[in-house]
Design a protein around this nucleic acid. Structure first.
Lengths: 190, 190
DNA sequence: GGTCAATCATGATCGAAATCATATTGTGTC
DNA sequence: GACACAATATGATTTCGATCATGATTGACC
């Protein structure tokens, strides 16, 4: 999926888009900035953040490898959120003008971009149903089945919206039930 | 948003697509059926269902007014889920061949369809963050702020993935806190 | 006006996850 | 090899939402 998108973007005017590495905590854009880019994540994670009236940061979305974000930027003049790297992240900045032009003039691009968006919709729906599972054990199992365990237990916990403790206990219980195999400390497999 | 999509679909070969009303419980398509249509919801609600190995039904997604569903059908030969009306629903069946042709040959359609998909992504992300709020009271408040309270308390509860009792108690507490106004039995306002 | 079903609203209880705390382990650095 | 640190793993307690139950209200139907 990622390589399809790379091929897709490579067929655009590749002089104008920028591949970058941003370190953890670094901002990609600020809320209120004029919209210039769609952002595509190669590896790592970006979070979209809003600030509450009391200054607290609220994560509106986490984008991971293979996802675009700030799609709203295609239709608005200013970004509605901050965008920050949750960990060291490799990304591609895609100028909106190039994207819009390609949507108009490159039918293959438009179709493949539609395919990409449809996959994101499907993925988000799957995630929504997962997060709605009330049982921590079943939610963690669904998370592993869905291939969400790629990094640390803390990262898995963040993805399934549980505390690390609840995630750990669920993993331990699933191993005990014979539904998961423990490969080592912090590493589990369906 | 809905009327934009109606205009959009009306510019297609409207002879070929079908507007229908389905009653609650009626199936629109079965898992395994050959994919023929994209489904657009005018009013009511459709659920996508999978069957677990023990025969239990799992709701994979609920589509409401203004949403398309079965986007995966654009890319697969067979539907992966059953689709059933959760209540009396008015919908439009859009032949995939027409959609695919329009994507290729009608650039305005392709762009507007991209806009529609982007809005669904944004909406799903918002909903995902809402469902992940652990406090029932805050989740219900976010739900009302987001305009999810359009029907019964039961329907609101289903949208925010809480039980009707928890939703009711949260609403009562929010009124007591002065954060919501109660307009009548089962009717609340920010 | 009476009946009925569905929804709203509330009460009591229980279990699970969050929270707070602590011990252990693995990795990176010196 | 020693040390520091972060993550994993586990323990104890608290909180809150799910569950089960019941009464009240409302709208549709006859």
């Amino acid at each position: 999926m990622i390589s399809i998108m790379i091929d897709l973007f490579n067929r655009l005017n590749s002089e104008t888009f920028v591949q970058r590495t941003v370190s953890k905590g670094q901002l990609v854009f600020h809320q209120g900035d004029a919209t210039r880019y769609l952002v595509y994540v190669l590896s790592g994670a970006l979070v979209l953040l809003r600030h509450k009236s009391d200054g607290e940061e609220v994560i509106v979305h986490t984008a991971r490898s293979g996802e675009t974000l700030a799609e709203a930027a295609l239709f608005t003049d200013h970004y509605h959120c901050d965008c920050k790297a949750a960990e060291e992240t490799e990304l591609v900045l895609l100028p909106l003008a190039v994207i819009r032009n390609a949507m108009r003039e490159d039918q293959v691009f438009a179709q493949d971009f539609i395919a990409h968006l449809c996959h994101q919709i499907i993925s988000l729906r799957t995630r929504l149903e997962l997060v709605a599972i009330t049982s921590a054990k079943e939610r963690v199992f669904a998370g592993l089945t869905e291939g969400l365990h790629t990094g640390t237990i803390r990262e898995l916990a963040a993805q399934v919206h549980l505390t690390p403790e609840a995630t750990n206990r669920s993993l331990a219980q699933l191993v005990k039930d014979g539904r998961l195999r423990k490969l080592g400390r912090g590493r589990y497999r369906v």
